[in-house]
Design a protein around this nucleic acid. Structure first.
Lengths: 195, 195
DNA sequence: GGGCGAGGTTAACCCAGGTTAAGGCGGCAA
DNA sequence: TTGCCGCCTTAACCTGGGTTAACCTCGCCC
């Protein structure tokens, strides 16, 4: 098993033969990404994705009117890429930036396609990836519809303990759909309540 | 081509042989759903889905604390089902209810699986379905993050002109994540501005 | 016709969060 | 050391939306 965390996220997923892992790794290229450097920036072709080996990334959507919204964070063992843009074969509207010095294992989507043609297991992987992405977004939609900002914050830390201390507060705020000022206020409210 | 609207939504998708359409239709069962009747209710097994032939449905998520949120509307040519629950093989947490007298073409997920085993085209369909669902949710996430309630309303009508006059305002409000009172206020604000 | 129930509107009041602006504070470079 | 920068906090003020409750209007059934 090559990427236990990734594999676990995609479960239930049939086994992938050792020979296929080897074939996949022969197509991948390890790459270092410095803190504050970009894995992808808006306008780039969305023709590659990666597995995070080390570090944390933030995925930022830059809107037409200049607003920035944080769509997600990605840490060790997770997939990194402008997935929506890949599916639609359009240029990336997402900026993917390392919050720490990072290492990633990069695949070209084109190479992955040849993997798929070679062995059915990769088609199953691709499908599970699509389904996982959907489930995550659906959960997030639900949170926006029925939770307050404070509850979304609690949920965020409960589900992402590994991000503690690794993402700046302003990015957490942008992820929750509020300003950093509001987040600071919420946190001090919580502090007062429990002391 | 059997379901042009559905097929178009899933594009780009390879052709499906006529014989496979026939096989699929032999597994399907047409069903009438009365106004206010349920295609699925919370607690039901999420073991079937349908294509809407006629009518409009609303998909409601009933939360633990009793809150209701509208996740989506589905009209002619669209897929109907508790997709997230199907993927996770858990009981439905979604209530699917007809807003008009409706007709649907029902498939059991189990039957669809045998379709998939029979011909690769159905695997491709399933994958596109997952990807489409993801893209829709991603768009919705984006709207929550960067648009005001009023802008979400405009977007909603721009993207769903076919729902005009077919869905009650309170459901539109619940879909937008606001109350019906707030929606009414927004609409009267708009009216005043343009008169 | 009268009553009634569903869906929509309006108003009054409250609160969460946005906006703006003024610090605080630790780290780092000159 | 000094000064600056990145990140966070706090405060004052404003606004959009929630809550509650009264009311309107239409369709429907008796």
């Amino acid at each position: 098993m090559r990427f236990p965390k990734l594999y676990e996220q995609l479960a239930p997923l049939g086994p992938i033969p050792e020979s296929e892992w080897e074939r996949a790794e022969s197509l991948a290229r390890e790459q270092a990404v410095e803190r504050k450097a970009h894995f992808l920036r808006p306008g780039d072709a969305a023709d590659r994705f990666a597995v995070v080996l080390q570090g944390v990334f933030r995925l930022v959507r830059v809107s037409a009117r200049g607003g920035e919204t944080v769509k997600a964070f990605r840490a060790e063992g997770e997939l990194l890429g402008a997935y929506a843009e890949m599916l639609q074969r359009v240029a990336s509207m997402t900026s993917i930036e390392a919050l720490e010095p990072a290492r990633v294992l990069v695949f070209r989507t084109q190479d992955f396609q040849t993997l798929e043609e070679g062995h059915g297991c990769w088609v199953r992987v691709a499908r599970r990836v699509a389904e996982r992405h959907f489930l995550l977004k659906e959960r997030r939609e639900q949170e926006f519809l029925e939770l307050s900002a404070e509850e979304r914050l609690d949920t965020f830390w409960a589900e992402n303990p590994h991000l503690r201390g690794r993402v700046p507060q302003r990015d957490v705020a942008a992820y929750l759909g509020i300003t950093e000022v509001a987040l600071s206020r919420i946190m001090s409210r919580k502090r007062k309540r429990t002391e």
